[in-house]
Structure formats: C-alpha cells, structure tokens
Amino acid sequence: MKLGKRISGLREQKQITQGELAQIIGVTRAALSHYENDRRLPDYNTLMKIAKYFSVSVEYVIEGDNTTQIHG
C-alpha cells in the first residue's frame, strides 16, 4: 500500500474530512489531497504531525509496517 492510501485510510478510520485533518496538521486541504493521491510527499514535520495525531509511528505512515504501529 502506498503512503497516500495509508494516510487516507487512517483519516477514514477516524471519520474526519480532508479539511479537518488538513487544519489539524497545518496544511491546506489541497496539499493533503496531493499527499493522499501520491502526487506530492509530505515533509518530515508533516509526517510527524500525521503520525502523532493517529497515534502511529512515522515508519508506519511511510512503510505501512504493522509491527511499528503504536496503540494508544
């Protein structure tokens, strides 16, 4: 699974919109859409914000390795 699919999957699990997540992590909705559609890669600080919000590791967001998922 690609990074964009993981981000959108995490967002859909929380049942929040792109606009809501974009506001939480400090990017535009358009930028988040680009991330979710694998047209652009988020920078490391944005990856950290995404991981923190969803209580997962940055490695999980990037690689999708279930062993690095943090349960909180």
Rank of each mutant, 00 (worst) to 15 (best):
Q18P: 12
N45S: 10
G72H: 14
E36I: 01
A22M: 04
V61K: 00
M1N: 08
R39C: 14
S8E: 10
N66E: 15
S57T: 06
N37K: 13
G4S: 11
S8F: 05
L3N: 03
F54A: 03
L10A: 06
E63D: 09
E63G: 15
E20F: 00
A22P: 04
S8N: 15
N45Y: 04
Y35V: 00
V27S: 01
R6C: 04
K14Y: 12
K2E: 14
Q18N: 15
G9E: 08
G64Q: 05
I50C: 02
D43C: 12
Q13E: 11
G64H: 04
Q18V: 11
M1E: 08
E36V: 02
N37V: 13
T46N: 04
S57D: 06
G72L: 13
Y60P: 01
S55P: 14
E59M: 07
G26A: 00
A22N: 05
I16M: 08
E59D: 13
Q23D: 10
K52S: 07
Y35G: 00
T46A: 04
I16H: 05
V61N: 00
H34P: 11
R11L: 10
E63K: 13
V56W: 01
H34C: 14
G4E: 04
K14M: 15
D38Y: 08
S57K: 00
R11G: 09
I70G: 07
M48P: 04
M48G: 10
N37I: 14
A30S: 14
S8P: 01
N45T: 07
I24W: 02
F54L: 08
